[in-house]
Computed example of a mutant assay.
Amino acid sequence: MVKIVECIPNISEGRRLEVVEEILDEVRQVAGVTLLDYSSNADHNRTVISMIGEPEKVLEAAWRLIVKAAEKIDLDQHQGEHPRMGATDVVPFVPVRGMTMDECVELAKRLGERVGRELSIPVYLYEKAATRPERRNLADVRRGQYEGLKESVKTPERTPDFGPSVLGKAGAIAVGARPPLVAFNVNLGTTNLEIGKAIAKGIRGSSGGFVNVKALGIDLSEQGMIQISMNMVDTQGTPLYRAMEFIKTEAAHFGVPVIGSEIVGLVPLDAMLDAATYYLKLHDFSSEQILEKRVFGF
Rank of each mutant, 00 (worst) to 15 (best):
P239W: 01
A70I: 02
A42N: 06
I11S: 07
H82G: 07
A130H: 01
A87S: 12
P180F: 15
F184P: 00
V267T: 15
A61G: 12
P92G: 00
S40D: 05
G205P: 12
M51N: 10
E292L: 13
P133L: 07
C104L: 02
R142E: 04
E127K: 01
G112T: 00
A61Y: 12
G176H: 10
R110D: 09
L65I: 07
V33H: 08
P95G: 01
P156L: 12
S287M: 14
R46A: 03
V233M: 12
A42S: 15
R142W: 10
M225V: 06
S286R: 12
L107H: 07
P257F: 08
T159I: 08
E262T: 08
K154P: 08
I23F: 02
T277D: 03
E6W: 02
L107N: 03
I66S: 14
C104M: 02
L75M: 15
G86N: 10
V90T: 11
P160N: 11
K293V: 14
D43T: 06
A130N: 05
T131F: 10
D76R: 08
N185R: 12
V105D: 03
R64F: 05
V267S: 04
I226F: 11
L24Q: 10
E292V: 05
G86R: 06
L273D: 04
K109D: 08
Y38C: 13
H253E: 02
K154R: 13
I247A: 05
R143D: 07
V166F: 13
A69W: 05
S221V: 05
D76C: 03
K169E: 13
A70T: 04
